[in-house]
Design a protein around this nucleic acid. Structure first.
Length: 141
DNA sequence: GCCAACGTTGGC
DNA sequence: GCCAACGTTGGC
């Protein structure tokens, strides 16, 4: 199975990229949306995840890796809600802003633009690689 | 099962 | 602060 690519959103005031770097690993919990839940369920260890700061920043700031597959969210009453384990891989040398993504025709169809409220979404390989290119960052191995 | 009202997210 | 998008809730 080739690895998949994803994007997760977080408000910096809630849980910033820098906090993930400090923690070294986190449980990505609190997701209460059916479609986002499906995406969490499809994540596999080793998948790469773009880390997007919503509201403040509005930019992709780093790359994380799925370190453990979906499991029941310990913060949820209902065990159907899932969480995954994430660890930081590296920051983008140049954060990629939403405006840059919107103005780049190569991002046509990107869920970040299409479904602005979705907090966990799949990213196609070309889109993932384009983010890294704009972010002046090499893909992790 | 439909749909109006309401709440939340997140960009502007 | 406003509002568009969209998910959820509850009356019927």
């Amino acid at each position: 199975m080739p690895r998949s690519y994803w994007l997760v959103k977080s408000e910096p005031s809630t849980y910033a990229w820098s906090q993930l770097v400090r923690d070294g690993r986190t449980i990505w919990d609190g997701v209460r949306n059916a479609l986002a839940r499906q995406h969490l369920a499809a994540m596999r260890a080793g998948d790469l995840v773009l880390y997007y700061h919503s509201n403040v920043g509005k930019e992709v700031v780093g790359i994380a890796r799925v370190s453990g597959e979906a499991h029941p969210d310990p913060t949820a009453d209902d065990p159907k809600w899932l969480a995954v384990d994430l660890e930081p891989v590296r920051a983008l040398a140049a954060p990629v802003g939403l405006a840059a993504i919107k103005s780049d025709p190569r991002f046509e169809g990107f869920a970040l633009i299409r479904q602005s409220r979705l907090s966990v979404m799949p990213v196609s390989r070309p889109h993932f690689e384009r983010i890294l290119e704009l972010g002046r960052t090499k893909a992790p191995r």
